[in-house]
Protein backbone atom coordinates (compact mmCIF):
# COMPACT_ATOMS: atom_id res chain seq x y z
CA UNK A 1 0.00 0.00 0.00
CA UNK A 2 1.25 3.43 -0.87
CA UNK A 3 -0.44 6.55 0.29
CA UNK A 4 -1.25 9.28 -2.16
CA UNK A 5 1.02 12.07 -1.02
CA UNK A 6 0.76 15.70 -2.09
CA UNK A 7 2.33 15.14 -5.47
CA UNK A 8 1.95 11.39 -5.40
CA UNK A 9 0.80 9.10 -8.15
CA UNK A 10 -2.56 9.72 -9.76
CA UNK A 11 -4.90 6.69 -9.71
CA UNK A 12 -4.13 5.29 -13.11
CA UNK A 13 -5.89 3.25 -15.74
CA UNK A 14 -6.10 -0.48 -16.12
CA UNK A 15 -3.65 -0.36 -18.99
CA UNK A 16 -6.28 -0.70 -21.73
CA UNK A 17 -4.20 1.56 -23.91
CA UNK A 18 -0.48 0.93 -23.95
CA UNK A 19 0.34 4.55 -24.75
CA UNK A 20 -0.56 5.73 -21.28
CA UNK A 21 -3.14 8.26 -20.22
CA UNK A 22 -4.88 10.63 -22.59
CA UNK A 23 -6.27 12.67 -19.69
CA UNK A 24 -4.65 13.39 -16.35
CA UNK A 25 -6.57 15.33 -13.72
CA UNK A 26 -4.60 16.39 -10.66
CA UNK A 27 -5.84 17.96 -7.44
CA UNK A 28 -8.70 19.62 -9.27
CA UNK A 29 -10.82 21.96 -7.15
CA UNK A 30 -13.97 23.87 -8.02
CA UNK A 31 -15.58 25.98 -5.33
CA UNK A 32 -18.63 28.12 -6.04
CA UNK A 33 -18.60 31.22 -3.84
CA UNK A 34 -21.68 31.87 -1.69
CA UNK A 35 -22.22 35.60 -1.52
CA UNK A 36 -24.18 37.87 0.74
CA UNK A 37 -24.53 41.62 1.17
CA UNK A 38 -26.58 44.24 -0.58
CA UNK A 39 -24.08 46.92 -1.49
CA UNK A 40 -20.85 45.03 -1.32
CA UNK A 41 -20.73 41.37 -2.23
CA UNK A 42 -19.07 39.54 0.57
CA UNK A 43 -18.14 35.94 0.18
CA UNK A 44 -19.51 34.11 3.18
CA UNK A 45 -18.65 30.60 2.16
CA UNK A 46 -18.26 28.22 -0.75
CA UNK A 47 -19.99 25.22 -2.23
CA UNK A 48 -17.15 22.74 -2.43
CA UNK A 49 -18.53 21.03 -5.51
CA UNK A 50 -15.24 19.41 -6.53
CA UNK A 51 -12.64 19.20 -3.81
CA UNK A 52 -9.20 17.91 -4.66
CA UNK A 53 -9.89 15.26 -7.27
CA UNK A 54 -7.16 13.32 -9.10
CA UNK A 55 -7.43 10.55 -11.68
CA UNK A 56 -6.30 9.62 -15.15
CA UNK A 57 -7.96 8.03 -18.16
CA UNK A 58 -6.22 5.80 -20.70
CA UNK A 59 -6.73 6.08 -24.41
CA UNK A 60 -9.62 3.93 -25.60
CA UNK A 61 -10.97 3.21 -22.15
CA UNK A 62 -14.28 4.18 -20.56
CA UNK A 63 -14.18 5.66 -17.11
CA UNK A 64 -17.55 5.61 -15.36
CA UNK A 65 -18.13 8.46 -12.92
CA UNK A 66 -20.91 7.74 -10.44
CA UNK A 67 -22.41 9.26 -7.33
CA UNK A 68 -25.63 10.74 -6.07
CA UNK A 69 -27.23 14.00 -7.11
CA UNK A 70 -25.12 17.02 -6.17
CA UNK A 71 -21.89 15.12 -5.51
CA UNK A 72 -20.09 17.13 -8.20
CA UNK A 73 -20.10 14.93 -11.30
CA UNK A 74 -21.25 17.60 -13.75
CA UNK A 75 -19.02 20.22 -12.18
CA UNK A 76 -16.05 17.90 -12.57
CA UNK A 77 -16.97 17.21 -16.21
CA UNK A 78 -17.32 20.90 -16.97
CA UNK A 79 -14.11 21.82 -15.20
CA UNK A 80 -12.19 19.26 -17.25
CA UNK A 81 -13.53 20.77 -20.48
CA UNK A 82 -12.88 24.30 -19.16
CA UNK A 83 -16.55 25.14 -19.67
CA UNK A 84 -16.16 26.52 -16.16
CA UNK A 85 -12.83 27.69 -14.79
CA UNK A 86 -11.49 25.44 -12.05
CA UNK A 87 -10.54 27.08 -8.77
CA UNK A 88 -7.21 25.27 -8.80
CA UNK A 89 -5.53 22.13 -10.00
CA UNK A 90 -4.35 20.74 -13.27
CA UNK A 91 -5.96 19.05 -16.27
CA UNK A 92 -3.58 17.61 -18.86
CA UNK A 93 -4.87 16.37 -22.20
CA UNK A 94 -2.32 14.41 -24.24
CA UNK A 95 0.35 15.89 -22.02
CA UNK A 96 -0.73 19.51 -22.51
CA UNK A 97 -1.98 21.62 -19.65
CA UNK A 98 -5.55 22.72 -20.33
CA UNK A 99 -6.40 24.60 -17.15
CA UNK A 100 -6.01 28.33 -17.64
CA UNK A 101 -5.47 28.22 -21.41
CA UNK A 102 -6.56 31.21 -23.46
CA UNK A 103 -9.96 31.05 -25.15
CA UNK A 104 -8.61 30.28 -28.60
CA UNK A 105 -6.34 27.48 -27.52
CA UNK A 106 -9.07 26.11 -25.29
CA UNK A 107 -11.46 26.04 -28.22
CA UNK A 108 -9.02 24.11 -30.33
CA UNK A 109 -8.56 21.57 -27.60
CA UNK A 110 -12.26 21.36 -27.09
CA UNK A 111 -12.65 19.90 -30.55
CA UNK A 112 -10.59 16.98 -29.26
CA UNK A 113 -12.67 16.78 -26.09
CA UNK A 114 -16.40 16.84 -26.67
CA UNK A 115 -19.34 16.72 -24.34
CA UNK A 116 -22.69 14.96 -24.74
CA UNK A 117 -25.32 16.37 -22.42
CA UNK A 118 -28.06 14.85 -20.32
CA UNK A 119 -31.05 16.73 -21.57
CA UNK A 120 -31.68 16.04 -25.25
CA UNK A 121 -34.33 18.76 -25.19
CA UNK A 122 -32.37 21.64 -23.72
CA UNK A 123 -29.04 20.96 -25.38
CA UNK A 124 -30.17 21.54 -28.98
CA UNK A 125 -31.04 25.02 -30.24
CA UNK A 126 -34.74 24.78 -31.18
CA UNK A 127 -34.45 27.41 -33.93
CA UNK A 128 -31.64 25.69 -35.80
CA UNK A 129 -31.99 22.94 -38.33
CA UNK A 130 -30.17 19.66 -37.78
CA UNK A 131 -27.80 20.50 -40.64
CA UNK A 132 -26.70 23.65 -38.78
CA UNK A 133 -26.59 22.07 -35.34
CA UNK A 134 -24.16 19.44 -36.54
CA UNK A 135 -22.50 21.38 -39.36
CA UNK A 136 -21.80 24.81 -37.80
CA UNK A 137 -19.28 23.63 -35.19
CA UNK A 138 -17.45 21.71 -37.92
CA UNK A 139 -17.24 24.84 -40.07
CA UNK A 140 -16.13 26.89 -37.07
CA UNK A 141 -13.30 24.49 -36.39
CA UNK A 142 -12.37 24.33 -40.07
CA UNK A 143 -13.00 20.61 -40.24
CA UNK A 144 -15.08 20.81 -43.41
CA UNK A 145 -15.53 23.22 -46.31
CA UNK A 146 -18.90 24.83 -46.79
CA UNK A 147 -19.51 22.89 -50.00
CA UNK A 148 -19.08 19.48 -48.43
CA UNK A 149 -20.92 20.11 -45.18
CA UNK A 150 -24.23 18.64 -46.29
CA UNK A 151 -22.70 15.35 -47.38
CA UNK A 152 -20.67 15.10 -44.17
CA UNK A 153 -23.70 15.82 -41.98
CA UNK A 154 -25.71 13.19 -43.83
CA UNK A 155 -22.91 10.72 -43.28
CA UNK A 156 -22.92 11.49 -39.57
CA UNK A 157 -26.69 11.10 -39.36
CA UNK A 158 -26.35 7.70 -40.91
CA UNK A 159 -23.56 6.78 -38.49
CA UNK A 160 -25.77 7.50 -35.48
CA UNK A 161 -28.72 5.67 -36.97
CA UNK A 162 -30.85 8.59 -38.18
CA UNK A 163 -32.37 9.08 -41.59
CA UNK A 164 -29.95 11.27 -43.62
CA UNK A 165 -32.94 12.78 -45.42
CA UNK A 166 -33.90 14.49 -42.15
CA UNK A 167 -30.95 16.89 -42.12
CA UNK A 168 -33.24 19.83 -42.75
CA UNK A 169 -35.57 19.21 -39.81
CA UNK A 170 -35.79 21.02 -36.48
CA UNK A 171 -35.10 19.36 -33.09
CA UNK A 172 -38.77 19.35 -32.04
CA UNK A 173 -39.51 16.98 -34.89
CA UNK A 174 -37.48 14.26 -33.18
CA UNK A 175 -38.08 12.04 -30.16
CA UNK A 176 -35.86 12.11 -27.08
CA UNK A 177 -33.73 9.21 -28.22
CA UNK A 178 -33.33 10.69 -31.69
CA UNK A 179 -32.30 14.03 -30.20
CA UNK A 180 -29.69 12.28 -28.13
CA UNK A 181 -28.37 10.78 -31.37
CA UNK A 182 -28.20 14.28 -32.85
CA UNK A 183 -26.16 15.42 -29.83
CA UNK A 184 -23.82 12.50 -30.38
CA UNK A 185 -23.52 13.28 -34.10
CA UNK A 186 -22.65 16.89 -33.25
CA UNK A 187 -19.92 15.75 -30.88
CA UNK A 188 -18.58 13.19 -33.38
CA UNK A 189 -18.43 15.77 -36.17
CA UNK A 190 -15.48 17.45 -34.48
CA UNK A 191 -13.58 14.17 -34.58
CA UNK A 192 -12.86 14.18 -30.87
CA UNK A 193 -10.52 11.81 -29.09
CA UNK A 194 -12.33 12.07 -25.77
CA UNK A 195 -16.06 12.32 -25.18
CA UNK A 196 -17.39 13.27 -21.79
CA UNK A 197 -20.99 12.09 -21.70
CA UNK A 198 -22.93 13.61 -18.80
CA UNK A 199 -25.92 11.37 -18.08
CA UNK A 200 -26.41 10.64 -21.78
CA UNK A 201 -29.22 8.15 -21.28
CA UNK A 202 -30.83 9.25 -18.01
CA UNK A 203 -33.70 11.05 -19.69
CA UNK A 204 -34.52 8.15 -22.00
CA UNK A 205 -36.77 5.13 -21.68
CA UNK A 206 -35.02 1.79 -21.15
CA UNK A 207 -35.64 0.46 -24.63
CA UNK A 208 -34.17 3.66 -26.09
CA UNK A 209 -31.34 3.68 -23.53
CA UNK A 210 -30.17 0.33 -24.88
CA UNK A 211 -30.08 1.77 -28.41
CA UNK A 212 -27.91 4.70 -27.34
CA UNK A 213 -25.58 2.59 -25.19
CA UNK A 214 -25.05 0.18 -28.08
CA UNK A 215 -24.40 3.11 -30.41
CA UNK A 216 -21.81 4.64 -28.07
CA UNK A 217 -20.06 1.29 -27.79
CA UNK A 218 -19.99 0.78 -31.56
CA UNK A 219 -18.58 4.27 -32.10
CA UNK A 220 -15.93 3.73 -29.47
CA UNK A 221 -14.73 0.65 -31.27
CA UNK A 222 -14.81 2.25 -34.68
CA UNK A 223 -13.08 5.52 -33.79
CA UNK A 224 -11.07 4.36 -30.76
CA UNK A 225 -12.78 6.94 -28.62
CA UNK A 226 -12.08 7.48 -24.96
CA UNK A 227 -15.14 8.05 -22.76
CA UNK A 228 -15.79 9.57 -19.42
CA UNK A 229 -19.31 8.35 -18.78
CA UNK A 230 -21.11 10.26 -16.04
CA UNK A 231 -24.24 8.70 -14.60
CA UNK A 232 -26.12 8.07 -11.42
CA UNK A 233 -27.44 4.75 -12.75
CA UNK A 234 -24.95 2.20 -11.50
CA UNK A 235 -26.31 -0.64 -13.63
CA UNK A 236 -25.81 1.31 -16.84
CA UNK A 237 -22.29 2.26 -15.79
CA UNK A 238 -21.41 -1.33 -14.96
CA UNK A 239 -22.37 -2.22 -18.50
CA UNK A 240 -20.27 0.43 -20.23
CA UNK A 241 -17.25 1.17 -18.05
CA UNK A 242 -13.78 -0.36 -17.80
CA UNK A 243 -13.04 1.60 -14.65
CA UNK A 244 -15.28 3.29 -12.11
CA UNK A 245 -14.81 6.38 -9.96
CA UNK A 246 -17.27 6.89 -7.10
CA UNK A 247 -17.82 10.43 -5.83
CA UNK A 248 -19.31 11.59 -2.56
CA UNK A 249 -19.60 15.28 -1.64
CA UNK A 250 -16.97 16.53 -4.07
CA UNK A 251 -14.40 13.77 -3.46
CA UNK A 252 -13.52 10.56 -5.20
CA UNK A 253 -13.90 7.97 -2.44
CA UNK A 254 -13.12 4.92 -4.55
CA UNK A 255 -11.71 4.28 -8.01
CA UNK A 256 -10.62 1.12 -9.73
CA UNK A 257 -11.29 -1.52 -12.37
CA UNK A 258 -15.06 -1.95 -12.84
CA UNK A 259 -15.22 -5.60 -11.84
CA UNK A 260 -13.19 -4.99 -8.68
CA UNK A 261 -15.29 -2.00 -7.60
CA UNK A 262 -18.60 -3.78 -8.25
CA UNK A 263 -17.68 -7.21 -6.93
CA UNK A 264 -15.44 -6.26 -4.03
CA UNK A 265 -16.02 -2.63 -3.08
CA UNK A 266 -13.64 -1.26 -0.46
CA UNK A 267 -15.43 1.88 0.65
CA UNK A 268 -18.58 1.49 2.79
CA UNK A 269 -20.30 4.15 0.70
CA UNK A 270 -19.72 2.22 -2.52
CA UNK A 271 -21.05 -0.92 -0.89
CA UNK A 272 -24.21 0.84 0.30
CA UNK A 273 -24.74 2.59 -3.01
CA UNK A 274 -24.46 -0.67 -4.95
CA UNK A 275 -26.76 -2.50 -2.61
CA UNK A 276 -29.43 0.19 -2.99
CA UNK A 277 -29.78 -0.37 -6.73
CA UNK A 278 -32.80 -2.57 -7.43
CA UNK A 279 -32.02 -5.68 -9.46
CA UNK A 280 -34.64 -6.48 -12.09
CA UNK A 281 -34.72 -10.11 -11.01
CA UNK A 282 -36.97 -10.87 -8.04
CA UNK A 283 -35.09 -13.98 -6.89
CA UNK A 284 -31.70 -12.28 -7.00
CA UNK A 285 -33.21 -9.32 -5.21
CA UNK A 286 -34.64 -11.42 -2.42
CA UNK A 287 -31.38 -13.31 -2.01
CA UNK A 288 -29.13 -10.34 -1.31
CA UNK A 289 -28.53 -8.28 1.79
CA UNK A 290 -29.42 -4.65 1.38
CA UNK A 291 -27.77 -1.86 3.33
CA UNK A 292 -30.14 1.06 3.72
CA UNK A 293 -28.27 4.27 4.58
CA UNK A 294 -29.97 6.55 7.05
CA UNK A 295 -30.44 10.26 6.58
CA UNK A 296 -29.55 12.57 3.72
CA UNK A 297 -26.36 13.70 2.04
CA UNK A 298 -24.96 16.69 3.98
CA UNK A 299 -24.57 20.08 2.30
CA UNK A 300 -21.44 20.54 0.14
CA UNK A 301 -21.25 24.08 1.54
CA UNK A 302 -20.49 22.64 4.95
CA UNK A 303 -19.17 19.11 4.48
CA UNK A 304 -18.47 17.02 7.59
CA UNK A 305 -14.91 17.09 8.94
CA UNK A 306 -12.71 14.03 8.60
CA UNK A 307 -14.29 11.53 6.28
CA UNK A 308 -17.22 13.24 4.58
CA UNK A 309 -19.21 10.03 4.79
CA UNK A 310 -18.82 9.53 8.54
CA UNK A 311 -22.25 10.96 9.43
CA UNK A 312 -23.98 8.12 7.55
CA UNK A 313 -21.39 5.38 7.65
CA UNK A 314 -22.19 2.13 9.44
CA UNK A 315 -18.46 1.53 10.16
CA UNK A 316 -17.50 4.97 11.43
CA UNK A 317 -15.38 5.37 14.58
CA UNK A 318 -13.83 8.42 16.27
CA UNK A 319 -10.96 8.71 13.83
CA UNK A 320 -13.42 9.10 10.95
CA UNK A 321 -14.76 12.41 12.26
CA UNK A 322 -11.32 13.93 12.74
CA UNK A 323 -8.84 12.63 10.18
CA UNK A 324 -9.49 12.81 6.47
CA UNK A 325 -8.73 9.40 4.93
CA UNK A 326 -6.37 9.43 1.96
CA UNK A 327 -7.08 7.71 -1.34
CA UNK A 328 -4.88 4.63 -0.92
CA UNK A 329 -3.93 1.95 -3.43
CA UNK A 330 -5.25 -1.41 -2.30
CA UNK A 331 -3.63 -3.25 -5.18
CA UNK A 332 -4.47 -3.74 -8.84
CA UNK A 333 -5.17 -0.05 -9.38
CA UNK A 334 -8.06 -0.19 -6.89
CA UNK A 335 -7.97 2.90 -4.65
CA UNK A 336 -10.21 3.90 -1.78
CA UNK A 337 -10.29 6.58 0.89
CA UNK A 338 -11.48 4.96 4.11
CA UNK A 339 -10.11 4.39 7.60
CA UNK A 340 -11.94 1.08 7.87
CA UNK A 341 -11.81 -0.50 4.44
CA UNK A 342 -14.07 -3.47 3.84
CA UNK A 343 -12.52 -6.92 3.91
CA UNK A 344 -11.89 -8.20 0.48
CA UNK A 345 -11.93 -11.91 1.13
Amino acid sequence: MSSLAESGPVPAGAGVGAEGPILVVERLVKHFPIKAGILIDRQIGAVRAVDDVSFSVDRGETLGLVGESGCGKSTLARSILQLIAPTSGSVRFEGREVAGLGRRAARELRADMQMVFQDPYASLNPRKRIAQIIGDPMLLHGIVERGEVKAVVQDLLETVGLNPEHYNRFPHEFSGGQRQRIGIARALGLRPKLIIADEPVSALDVSIQAQIINLLEDLQEEYRLTYVFVAHDLSVVRHVADRIAVMYLGKIVEIGPAEAVYDTPIHPYTEALLSAVPIPDPRANAARRQIVLEGDVPSPADPPAGCRFHTRCPRATDVCSTGEPLLIDHGGGHHAACHHPLDRA
Binding site: V206, Q211, H239, A258
Partner: peptide, 24 residues
Protein backbone atom coordinates in the same frame (compact mmCIF):
# COMPACT_ATOMS: atom_id res chain seq x y z
CA UNK B 1 -37.58 -6.62 -25.11
CA UNK B 2 -37.81 -4.67 -21.86
CA UNK B 3 -36.18 -7.42 -19.84
CA UNK B 4 -33.44 -7.93 -22.43
CA UNK B 5 -32.56 -4.25 -22.71
CA UNK B 6 -31.86 -3.89 -19.00
CA UNK B 7 -28.45 -3.55 -17.46
CA UNK B 8 -27.82 -5.15 -14.07
CA UNK B 9 -25.72 -3.90 -11.22
CA UNK B 10 -24.95 -7.43 -10.03
CA UNK B 11 -23.65 -8.88 -13.27
CA UNK B 12 -20.68 -8.04 -15.48
CA UNK B 13 -21.28 -6.49 -18.87
CA UNK B 14 -22.70 -8.59 -21.63
CA UNK B 15 -21.36 -8.26 -25.14
CA UNK B 16 -24.32 -6.22 -26.25
CA UNK B 17 -27.70 -5.19 -24.96
CA UNK B 18 -30.77 -6.47 -26.74
CA UNK B 19 -32.53 -3.40 -28.02
CA UNK B 20 -36.09 -2.79 -29.15
CA UNK B 21 -35.93 -1.11 -32.54
CA UNK B 22 -37.88 2.05 -33.31
CA UNK B 23 -40.09 4.04 -30.96
CA UNK B 24 -43.47 3.75 -29.31
Amino acid sequence: GLLGSLTRVDQPRLARLAQIAGQP
